[in-house]
Computed example of a mutant assay.
Amino acid sequence: MRPLVFEAGERIRPLLGVSVFPKEIAMPPRSQVERVFDVRRWTEMPAGGHFAALEKPDLLAAELRAFFRLLR
């Protein structure tokens, strides 16, 4: 499997919200993500992991609502 590689100056258009759960498998640093994506929200979550929707559904739902509230 090849890693995801972007050309110099390449940008992904849709806005991005990131919820970083402490027990997630892996997450690139914010500075690297912001090189390609328009990060509108980046939240370090207090609990949860790879299966956040099952582990911490209330936290995830609140974070999704907060992200989309920014777009109103």
Rank of each mutant, 00 (worst) to 15 (best):
M27Y: 02
P14F: 14
V20F: 01
A47S: 06
A61V: 15
V5C: 02
W42E: 01
L16P: 01
D38C: 09
E55W: 08
R30T: 02
I12T: 03
K23D: 14
L71F: 02
R30K: 15
L15I: 04
V5E: 02
R2A: 07
M27K: 04
L71A: 13
E10V: 03
F6C: 09
L54C: 09
P14N: 06
L54K: 02
L4M: 10
S19M: 13
W42C: 00
L16Q: 03
A52P: 12
P28A: 15
V39N: 07
L59G: 08
P46T: 09
A52K: 00
F68C: 06
R13F: 06
I12P: 04
G17Y: 12
I12C: 06
A52I: 11
P28Y: 00
L64D: 01
L59F: 12
Q32K: 13
R65V: 13
P28L: 14
L15D: 08
P57D: 07
E44C: 01
R11E: 10
R30N: 05
L60V: 10
E10S: 05
R11K: 12
P22L: 07
G49E: 12
F51G: 14
P28H: 09
E24P: 04
G9N: 05
E55H: 07
P57C: 12
A52D: 05
F37V: 11
S31K: 05
R30V: 00
I25T: 15
V36Q: 02
R69K: 15
P3R: 12
A47W: 08
V33F: 03
Q32F: 11
W42D: 04
F68E: 04
A62Q: 14
P29V: 04
A66N: 10
E55R: 00
A52L: 01
P3T: 14
V18A: 01
M1T: 08
G48H: 14
S19V: 07
R2L: 13
E7V: 10
